[in-house]
């Protein structure tokens, strides 16, 4: 997994609905593709979980089963009740976990 790219507004009004965009580099190997040289199936390795939590409360969790494109992109909206921290997490089949956080100030 590469370094994630997340777009989160730095500030918001209390109760405002904001849009979050996330993008991460990953092959998303489906497990259905054959190696061109050996003819063997390439083992599946996809990001199988993406989540975002605000001040510890889960906003969205995605369980990925397949068919999500290489370099997965997720966009979603959320209501910001107060200042706080949005924590993102990606986990793949090989056990790699990537996390990042963004602060949002309500003022």
């Amino acid at each position: 997994m590469g370094k994630p790219r997340v777009k989160v507004p730095k500030s918001a009004k209390a109760g405002e609905v904001i849009t979050i965009k996330t993008l991460i580099k990953h092959k998303m190997e489906s497990g259905r593709r054959k190696d061109k040289k050996t003819g063997e199936l390439v083992p599946r390795n996809i990001i199988n979980m993406f989540s975002a939590s605000f001040n510890g409360e889960e906003v969205i969790k995605v369980d990925l089963h397949g068919s999500v494109s290489t370099n997965p992109y997720f966009q979603f909206q959320m209501k910001v009740p107060e200042s706080g921290e949005l924590a993102f997490k990606w986990a793949d089949d090989d056990g790699n976990v990537t996390e990042t956080t963004s602060k949002i100030t309500v003022g």
Partner: peptide, 17 residues
């Protein structure tokens, strides 16, 4: 239309590294 939608930017980030 947005560098956060544009998937090429995961590679621009790699370029920066």
């Amino acid at each position: 239309l947005d560098d956060f939608d544009n998937p090429a930017f995961v590679f621009v980030d790699d370029g920066e590294t």
